[in-house]
């Protein structure tokens, strides 16, 4: 114990780095974020519930929830597929495609927003095609889902990729030599290992989708009771200087995000435990 303490002391900068970290985080994130809870506590329980359950707000939550969920689900399926192809198969241009996957993270959300809106509008390159079948995409929940699919594309890929890369081939070979079919190997050997990272990526994409604003406002069209999303409701309350209303909506969203964060942390722990077991 004493020896350990001495060893710790050798490196300098504990005080300095602690000071910078705490000061920066408190001033920019923690103290401002605590304002939401202070502000909403002044609101009173009755008013809080009234704002949060008003028809328009409730509908916005529903839209945000449903579109983020569907988009995260699509991302989980295709994210797994893309990660699988990138790790397991060899083909030319693989590195470029691998780098290209992160485009949604690098592209400003507003740029993604106006691009997708024009692309899926009824005269747009892709919207034209869908309007042949009388499917409207821009300014409907489908459009919101597509924007969220774009923005959340890299999450599952980036969670699954390292796990798949570190997976030992021997286990699969053992399963194969014991007579398991390809499908059996995938379902019983590979998939259980991939489930935690897929779920973690799903939660990340879902959390991001709930809060996403820039890419969605344009394609949503923001029609009350139809295509309004929760972040847009906060924005519109703010524009009317209704701080209490904006705060109440934000509190509900924050609580949901925190739950997502906890779930992600637990999943990552579970995933890590799995890794150790296989070693």
């Amino acid at each position: 114990m004493k020896k350990k303490y001495k060893k710790k002391n050798v490196l300098p900068g504990f005080g300095l780095s602690l000071g910078i970290t705490m000061l920066y985080m408190s001033l920019i994130v923690l103290i401002p974020l605590s304002m939401v809870f202070i502000e909403s506590s002044q609101l009173g329980w009755h008013d809080f519930i009234k704002i949060v359950t008003s028809d328009r707000v409730f509908h916005a939550y529903k839209i945000s929830f449903a579109t983020a969920f569907v988009a995260a689900l699509v991302n989980a399926v295709f994210g797994l597929l893309i990660a699988w192809v990138l790790v397991r198969y060899r083909f030319p241009g693989k590195r470029i495609i691998d780098g290209f996957i992160d485009l949604p993270f690098a592209l400003p959300t507003a740029v993604a927003g106006i691009t997708l809106t024009t692309l899926y509008g009824k005269d747009g390159w892709l919207g034209q095609f869908f309007s042949l079948f009388h499917i409207k995409i821009a300014f409907t929940p489908i459009g919101i889902t597509i924007a969220l699919m774009f923005i959340g594309l890299p999450f599952v890929v980036r969670m699954v990729q390292p796990v798949l890369e570190n997976m030992e081939k021997e286990v699969e070979e053992a399963a194969a030599s014991l007579g398991a079919s390809k499908q059996q190997i995938f379902l019983k050997v590979i998939f259980p290992e991939l489930l935690p990272p897929v779920l973690a990526g799903f939660s990340l994409a879902f959390a991001r989708g709930l809060g996403e604003y820039g890419s969605v406002v344009f394609i949503a069209g923001n029609m009350p009771m139809k295509t309004e999303i929760a972040p847009f409701m906060i924005m519109s309350k703010l524009e009317q200087f209704d701080y209490a209303g904006a705060t109440a909506i934000a509190v509900v969203m924050l609580v949901i995000s925190f739950v997502c964060l906890i779930v992600i942390n637990l999943l990552q722990k579970w995933s890590r435990k799995h890794e150790f077991q296989s070693e």
């Binding site: 401002p32 304002m35 709930l210 996403e212 972040p231 703010l238 934000a250 964060l261």
Partner: peptide
């Protein structure tokens, strides 16, 4: 976990809390 927090918070809420503060 606190360092990762801004990733979980909607950008609109980030703006809102700064206005409140």
């Amino acid at each position: 976990s606190l360092i990762e927090l801004p990733f979980a918070v909607s950008p609109v809420i980030a703006g809102l809390v700064l206005v409140l503060f």
